[in-house]
Amino acid sequence: MHTLNFPRYSFRFKNSENKVAVFDELRKKFVLLTPEEWVRQHVVHFLIQEKKFPKSLLNVEKQLKIHDLIKRYDVIAYRPDGSTHLVVECKAASVPITQETFDQIARYNLALKATYLMVTNGLQHYFCQLDYAAEKYHFLTDLPEWT
């Protein structure tokens, strides 16, 4: 797997039927290690270890219904009241971040109404904060720590 633009983290791996799996701390199980999953696992560790997000408020790979279509978000962080704090869209390192990627997370956010969005392919990270009152978003140089 690619070396990503994140701090180094410790992961647990296992081989099964000639496939490598990585342990997901949130799902509490081993999942197939794909290039996108490698990025997703780094994001989870980044949010917990660097940004101090509580594990109990993070969720990965759940279904979301948008205009009668079933989609799956990569990572979401909730606030204690159940509202959405952050939505993360992960791509494999080999996938460039394009306008289409931003459009995808924007569609998800129509239903989720997060305060922050993060788009990453593990090499490039983009963060923005949404201002719903002014109907604007602001790109940030980094994601704020959990407060």
Score class of each variant (00 low, 15 high):
114 A>M: 05
94 S>D: 08
95 V>N: 09
121 N>S: 09
85 H>F: 10
127 F>T: 02
122 G>L: 07
94 S>R: 14
112 L>D: 01
106 A>E: 09
130 L>I: 13
82 G>N: 11
118 M>I: 03
119 V>F: 00
131 D>W: 00
106 A>H: 06
106 A>Y: 11
85 H>R: 15
112 L>Q: 01
97 I>K: 05
100 E>R: 14
97 I>A: 03
85 H>Q: 11
95 V>T: 15
101 T>F: 03
97 I>N: 03
83 S>R: 06
116 Y>W: 08
108 Y>T: 03
117 L>E: 04
100 E>M: 11
131 D>S: 04
129 Q>P: 05
101 T>M: 00
114 A>S: 08
109 N>G: 01
119 V>M: 01
129 Q>T: 02
79 R>P: 02
101 T>C: 15
111 A>V: 12
97 I>L: 06
122 G>W: 06
107 R>Q: 14
124 Q>L: 12
88 V>L: 04
93 A>P: 15
130 L>Q: 10
130 L>A: 01
83 S>Q: 07
88 V>H: 06
126 Y>H: 14
94 S>L: 09
126 Y>Q: 11
107 R>T: 14
118 M>C: 07
106 A>M: 11
89 E>A: 09
84 T>W: 02
110 L>H: 10
104 Q>D: 10
123 L>R: 07
116 Y>M: 04
125 H>M: 08
114 A>V: 09
98 T>Y: 01
106 A>N: 08
93 A>D: 11
125 H>N: 09
100 E>T: 15
129 Q>G: 01
111 A>Y: 12
114 A>N: 04
132 Y>A: 03
106 A>R: 13
107 R>Y: 15
128 C>Q: 13
106 A>W: 03
127 F>P: 04
126 Y>T: 03
126 Y>E: 10
83 S>W: 02
89 E>Q: 14
131 D>M: 04
121 N>P: 08
96 P>F: 06
101 T>A: 15
103 D>Y: 09
116 Y>H: 07
122 G>V: 00
127 F>R: 05
94 S>K: 12
125 H>W: 01
114 A>T: 06
80 P>W: 11
109 N>Y: 12
128 C>M: 12
129 Q>M: 06
91 K>N: 11
83 S>A: 02
130 L>D: 05
96 P>G: 10
118 M>L: 15
97 I>P: 07
112 L>M: 11
87 V>W: 01
116 Y>D: 05
114 A>K: 02
92 A>R: 09
95 V>D: 13
124 Q>H: 10
102 F>L: 07
80 P>R: 14
124 Q>A: 10
96 P>V: 00
103 D>N: 15
98 T>S: 15
99 Q>A: 14
82 G>V: 14
106 A>K: 05
127 F>M: 06
95 V>S: 12
124 Q>N: 10
122 G>A: 07
123 L>E: 07
122 G>F: 10
111 A>E: 08
118 M>T: 03
83 S>V: 08
103 D>M: 11
125 H>K: 13
100 E>F: 11
101 T>W: 02
90 C>D: 12
125 H>I: 01
